[in-house]
Simulated scan of single mutants.
Amino acid sequence: MAEIDLNSDLAESFGVWRLGDDAAMLDVVTSANLACGFHAGDPRTLRRACLDAAARDVAIGAQVSYRDLAGFGRRFIDVDPADLSADVLYQLGALDGLARTAGTAVRYVKPHGALYNAIVEHEAQAAAVVEAVLAYDRTLPVLGLPGSAWLRLADDAGLSTVPEAFADRAYTAAGTLVPRAEPGAVLTDPDEIAARVVALAERGTLPAVDGTELEVHARSVCVHGDTPGAVAVARAVRSALEENDVDVRPFASPGP
């Protein structure tokens, strides 16, 4: 039986500014990439998300990012690698502390936004994030794009690597994500997205924007919490996977 993890970026509200429906998404996904306060998320939001994830046995991942609240972490920053390592450590410690007060813990690491995209090829920044994970807890798995420098360097360092795909994002023929500024970069039709994810789980393929079929070997698939209709999309994806006898389960234990 095929199996796959379903993850989502959550805890991205900040103060009175609300983004997404964390509680509803946590009823559907098996892993939650929680913001750590650098691109989004305030302490109360993060704590609430940790409590809700723990109550639902959803694995918590630290979604570390550049220090960029104004840009939602979607702007590349040419930060010194030593500073980046320290920033990642800071975020890991903060979220893990909140998770532990909820009776759980951070179980994996996934970079966010521009940092995620940068370390596909940016060797120095990829190495800096790897260094931070090693310093904090070398047993933590790391999520990233298949073929990225980030996963390669993490694997070389002895970390457990988890390749992921994106349910609601378009892919180029090179296997990278279509930039968000381009038309069609974000997919919103629940049925279309669900069909794509079933094909990914069963055959290891996703269509590129030019019509070619990409080989994508992913153990986890992401539905963004800020995608329009995110809850409906996530429910459609999970239902389609289960209807096609795909086992939906976290790749990391949700417990402490």
Rank of each mutant, 00 (worst) to 15 (best):
R100C: 11
D57R: 13
V129E: 00
A185Q: 10
S160A: 14
L92T: 02
T104V: 09
I4D: 07
L143T: 11
P146K: 00
D156F: 13
R74V: 08
D96Q: 01
F72E: 13
C50T: 12
D5F: 09
A230K: 02
T172L: 13
D5K: 08
G225N: 09
R152M: 12
L92N: 00
D96K: 03
C36Y: 00
D155A: 15
G37P: 03
A126G: 15
A86C: 11
G211D: 05
S65D: 00
E215G: 06
E123W: 02
Y116L: 04
Q63M: 09
A70H: 13
P254K: 04
F72Y: 15
D189F: 04
V162H: 04
D226F: 07
V223L: 02
N33L: 07
P190N: 07
R152F: 10
H39E: 06
A232N: 12
V88I: 11
P179T: 09
R249N: 03
A99E: 06
V248P: 10
A59R: 02
G73L: 01
E164Y: 05
R249F: 00
L177V: 05
E242H: 03
N7V: 09
D27G: 12
H217T: 15
H39G: 07
D245W: 09
R18P: 10
I77S: 09
V79G: 00
A135V: 11
Y171W: 11
A70W: 03
L34N: 00
